[in-house]
């Protein structure tokens, strides 16, 4: 247990009933994302899934902690490593799998695939395969929320690699000038593809948003409670019209950059991987705290894990059985229907 956890467990026990439910819910969501990604890995390695996939395993606490602070109406933009964000924002497992397999029942009718899940119903403006590609889109959605006065907040998820893109700085500048309701969530999983972030980013990451005067906080992205509580403060701050914030989450991806990145020894060590998996695992961390603070029994976690695994298996089976799009659909959706001029 980290210091922060000790403090909370001892000094600040929240009203029991409520928090147990809340955090068990987060445990379930994280477990679901992990089960989903493990299944993706299995489908991919058994050649049942086309294309490639960037797994979110290890980073679950970021998506779950942040999205738990949002309403369904709030918006997110996601990344190439986006399955976790989409699920945490409310996407269903079965339609996610269907999209990953290029099936008609998928969130994008099979047209988007793993890197482009989008879902208006759950406020998902879309995952983006261009690193940093959604920085301005998210900021534009925040501009619209402000203009429309609808009280919505936007979360822009990106990896630390996106800090290399100038677009992000142009967008953050305007967000701060115009006090837009947006939270920039930087998931520092330590690597841009196969390169450590210290080799690609000068100075301290958190100093960059601070240069614009943007309120910036750094949290342990493996502790879902910290992520959640911080995100909640920052989201409510934005909702009150106090402007953007930047949340830097220290995290780690357990697997390769994508599913095919198996031999990683040239860029990171097995010991490092083991350290994060054994000492910093977000599920284990939360389970330990719940057991300590609320005497939640191990069997409760096992039950959750079994139930999400069943949901994931059923979702994958649904997707495998689901039909491909009709070939005529290839030319549909190039343009949206417009009224006659």
């Amino acid at each position: 247990m980290t210091d922060a956890m000790d403090k909370r467990a001892a000094g600040n026990p929240p009203a029991p009933g409520m928090d147990v439910e809340l955090y068990l819910g987060m445990y379930e969501q994280m477990a679901k994302i992990r089960a989903f990604e493990n299944k993706v890995n299995e489908l991919y390695t058994s050649a049942k899934m086309p294309g490639l996939s960037h797994l979110y395993i290890g980073e679950e606490a970021v998506a779950v902690g942040v999205c738990s602070a949002l309403t369904r109406e709030d918006y997110i933009t996601s990344t190439h490593r986006g399955h976790g964000h989409c699920l945490a924002k409310g996407a269903q497992v079965d339609r996610m799998f269907a999209e990953l397999l290029g099936k008609k029942a998928g969130y994008c009718a099979g047209k988007g695939g793993s890197m482009h899940i989008a879902d208006p119903q759950s406020g998902n403006l879309g995952a983006n395969a261009i690193v940093g590609g959604s920085a301005a889109i998210a900021t534009g959605a925040a501009l619209a929320a402000k203009k429309l006065g609808n009280g919505r907040v936007v979360v822009c998820f990106f990896g630390e690699g996106a800090l290399g893109q100038g677009l992000l700085y142009e967008a953050m500048n305007m967000a701060q000038l115009w006090k837009l309701p947006i939270l920039y969530v930087c998931e520092n999983n330590q690597y841009n593809e196969y390169t450590h972030f210290r080799e690609t980013a000068a100075g301290e990451l958190a100093d960059r948003p601070k240069a614009f005067g943007i309120h910036t906080e750094t949290v342990d992205g493996q502790d879902v409670r910290l992520v959640y509580e911080t995100a909640q403060r920052l989201v409510e701050r934005a909702r009150r019209g106090e402007g953007p914030a930047f949340l830097l989450c220290e995290t780690y991806r357990y697997h390769g950059h994508h599913v095919g990145d198996i031999d990683r020894s040239y860029y990171r060590s097995k010991e490092e991987e083991r350290y994060w998996q054994e000492q910093r695992d977000p599920l284990k961390t939360l389970a330990d705290w719940l057991s300590g603070a609320f005497q939640v029994h191990r069997s409760a976690f096992e039950q959750i894990e079994n139930s999400v695994r069943a949901e994931v298996e059923a979702g994958a089976e649904f997707a495998i059985q689901a039909p491909f799009p009709d070939l005529s659909e290839v030319t549909e959706h190039v343009y949206a229907e417009s009224p006659d001029a």
Binding site: S114, P325, V330, V334
Partner: peptide, 8 residues
């Protein structure tokens, strides 16, 4: 735009 689904 190039669709993801292999059949498309």
């Amino acid at each position: 735009p190039i669709p993801f689904s292999p059949v498309l």
